[in-house]
């Protein structure tokens, strides 16, 4: 592994992200929507409107049922607190997962197919860059900005939730153990999985569009997670978050081994260069 080459490739890719307006827009807009807009709307509306009056007995019962499943030690004085607590700790983390997924997906797909579409992949394959270095640099260069976006979103989310939620709860409610498990374990694993899957797909399809379409499949488990939580089928707590992260870690290792085995320069060249 040539560290000089690795460093040059990562530096070039990061600069490329910074200079590609569409990419930059995506990695700015997505965190704003999921970590600023959504929590502001929910916590803000619970402060502005009298939700207790608006909801009926059925909703109250449903909230109590959800809360009984969570084994939380928090005591609630009103229905607004219950709604905000459930949203912040159970629904928002699932939605939040879309931040690293979308960011990593866009960045990784651009990183490999982008090289091919701009006809620069040919230059890289003609240079003394080993395929291992090529894939590793692409993985790191996609992982770093996605992780940064994820952590920044987490911080923004925390400021909004605690800033607005303090008026409602009279204490700091963020981050809960769910969030800590998510940001430390699940989010990096999900980013790595998205990046690896995207690189794997990108090295086998010809256009950016194809890569995007195929990698869109990653969003499906997250949607299942959201539906599962909204419907009350299951609630993902800290323990389950850690188990999911461990499973994704295993999948990542398998994916990494597959990528290393299949990444033959000749196959890559024949598949990618006309």
């Amino acid at each position: 592994m040539n560290k000089r080459i690795l460093k040059a490739m990562i530096k070039k890719d990061l600069r490329d992200i910074y200079r590609t307006n569409t990419l930059l827009t995506t990695i700015i807009v997505i965190p704003i929507v999921f970590s600023v807009l959504f929590p502001t709307l929910l916590v803000g509306s619970s402060l502005l409107f009298d939700i207790e009056k608006a909801v009926g007995n059925d909703v109250e019962k449903m909230l109590s049922m959800f809360l009984s499943q969570t084994n939380n030690e928090q005591t609630f004085t009103n229905i607004e607190q219950q709604i905000v607590y459930l949203f912040i700790n159970y629904l928002l983390p699932s939605l939040f997962l879309l931040v690293p997924i979308i960011t990593a997906s866009v960045v990784a797909a651009n990183s490999f197919v982008g090289e091919k579409e701009r006809r620069t992949l040919e230059s890289l394959l003609f240079s003394p860059v080993s395929i291992k270095t090529l894939f590793l640099s692409k993985t790191i260069a996609s992982f770093i900005p996605s992780l940064l976006v994820s952590v920044t979103s987490f911080i923004l989310c925390g400021i909004i939730i605690n800033g607005l939620g303090y008026q409602l709860f009279g204490e700091i409610i963020f981050p809960s153990s769910n969030w800590v498990a998510l940001i430390i374990c699940l989010s990096p694993m999900v980013i790595l999985f998205t990046v690896l899957l995207n690189l794997y797909i990108s090295s086998r399809v010809k256009t950016y569009q194809e890569a995007q379409n195929m990698s869109g499949i990653i969003v499906l488990p997250v949607i299942a997670l959201i539906v599962g939580q909204v419907s009350g089928l299951f609630l993902v707590g800290a323990k389950l978050t850690l188990i999911i992260a461990a499973v994704i870690l295993v999948v990542n290792v398998v994916l990494l081994l597959r990528i290393t085995k299949l990444s033959d320069r000749h196959i890559l060249f024949e598949k990618q260069i006309h």
Binding site: R15, R19, T20, R118, R119, E122, S123, F126
Partner: peptide
Amino acid sequence: GIVTESAGLYHQM
């Protein structure tokens, strides 16, 4: 060293 038909340069750089 190689010069390919497409030049293979990074246009944004």
